[in-house]
Design a protein around this nucleic acid. Structure first.
Lengths: 288, 288
DNA sequence: AATGATGTTATCAAAATGATTGCTTCTCAT
DNA sequence: ATGAGAAGCAATCATTTTGATAACATCATT
């Protein structure tokens, strides 16, 4: 029997069983019924099929009529850690949210900023259509104003979702915070080439940086483990436009001699291939 | 025709169509085939069904043989913004990762710390089973040591995934960074009550805090929009044990008179119902 | 005007699913 | 210790869904 030959729905249910066994340790028929709104007999069939594919993965305990993960468990599916944690926090099953929380013991960081789904939708479509967008924007520095922007990407900077766009007011590419956009609407006009992503130099410029454990850290190994460093070094390629955010998000000490003090500095920027003219770096801890 | 009456797989495909129209603006049969590995005729059926359910949502453009979102579009499914952005960045379709990235224009913040999937699995199962765990832990303050801990929750503090657990070495509840745990294995022994979640006082204690726009911010409205504040106030209920992380994650100025300087301080802690003895607050910006 | 790519519709066979039944196993309360 | 109850299993059959195929439609391109 081959996993590939099964249909999407069947694979999905098997993956669910696999997931529950691995990350919860147990599964009952009722869980499957709840999640997939499937019939009773189907669940038995699914469990039987799973058992055939992986006989050593589970066993039924009659005390509580649940299937338990056996020690010899070998996952049938590869579970990406990020996706797993997301599933545990928010519920398994993207797209259709049927509210089943696999775990009440897993908590993602509190998000205080929630972009509006319609704003995201309008922006994403405009990006896809290569069309400009008209909106009211409330800037931190200059307050509210009506704008025309030509968006090309959406990115999270660790705190907020930004849209990267050509700003027709200032004639340059800038980041706009998604939650500060209001009354967004696509403009059905063509866009001149110079306002498209290909011309956003600091977006397209990839910077190589090298991070090391901050010298003030007592037990280097802890940080090396966190960042999965090889020989104490973590090499990254980052868009120039996003570099400053990254440094701030991860509290990277950007002084030349790692001279910042504070428990939060676990990393130090030990090398960067272009230090000059990286505008986004101005928000980095200790930069110049 | 009623959405509820359709089976899971069918609803999923309709949700996918709905999602693509709303957040990409278009969809072709090939996209469905790619994603669900479904037959050709099925896709036509799905699109036909979708059209029956929402005749004004899409139209076929023959120039490129794609279905396009119409202006009158009304979503058939509710798309949670967080889930949407996740889908755009990582691909639609949890559980089964078939690698279809709906968008190459959407980027989540760079994650530099990736917990090991097996460690998470072992921890989650131990939590569910209320069992202790033996592991090697590399602490920032005291280095490497063998430990026994009794975990009860996993939480992200904005940067890292932590496991909240009773530490048998220090006889108190503590946070352990998931990536610093090695050689993790469940101990098949019962746990005494005082080591279980119910006894983790600072975890169970919910603190009420009130955040306001930092007085140094020029255009208050921008921040109010970000945090969807009501009358300039954002009220939160936070676990005491996590409060300090939250304050640091969101750069909340925790001085009494909002006296911290720096562009990153958008928020100010204007009220807290218990200020004394909140140990986790010691990492908060400007606390005491 | 022919060609090719893609979508549509109809039809039929194959596969998956739902529902029902009778059975088993084990726990728990009596 | 024993019978009721809960949950799972396996077999069967009806129903629904899906896959495959073919004939046709539409439009852009050449």
């Amino acid at each position: 029997m081959d996993l590939e030959k099964l249909n999407y729905a069947q694979r999905e249910r098997l993956a669910f069983i696999d997931f529950c066994l691995q990350f919860i340790g147990q599964i009952a028929r009722a869980d499957l019924i709840n999640h997939f709104k499937t019939g009773l007999a189907s669940c038995s069939r699914d469990l039987t099929l799973y058992r055939e594919l992986a006989p050593n993965n589970l066993e039924l305990k009659h005390e509580d009529k649940q299937y338990y993960r056996k020690n010899e468990f070998q996952p049938l599916f590869t579970h990406n850690p990020e996706a797993v944690l997301n599933s545990l926090c928010r519920g398994f099953g993207d797209g259709l949210s049927n509210g089943l929380h696999p775990s009440s013991h897993c908590f993602d960081a509190t998000r205080l900023i929630h972009p509006d789904s319609n704003v995201i939708a309008t922006l994403m479509r405009a990006i896809n259509n290569k069309k400009p967008v008209r909106c009211d924007y409330v800037s931190l520095s200059s307050g509210e104003s009506r704008r025309e922007i030509v968006p090309h990407s959406i990115a999270n900077n660790g705190q907020r979702w930004h849209v990267r766009a050509f700003d027709r007011k200032t004639d340059e590419f800038r980041d706009f915070v998604c939650t500060r956009l209001q009354n967004v609407s696509e403009i059905h006009q063509p866009v001149s080439d110079n306002q498209l992503a290909a011309n956003d130099i600091s977006w397209n410029n990839i910077i190589n940086v090298e991070l090391r454990v901050h010298p003030s850290v007592k037990h280097k190994k802890a940080i090396e483990l966190d960042y999965n460093m090889i020989n104490g070094v973590l090499r990254l390629e980052v868009r120039e436009a996003l570099l400053g955010y990254l440094m701030r998000q991860w509290n990277v000490d950007c002084t030349k001699n790692a001279s910042l003090e504070g428990d939060e500095y676990h990393l130090w920027l030990s090398h960067i291939n272009e230090l000059e003219n990286v505008a986004s770096m101005k928000i980095s801890p200790g930069y110049q």
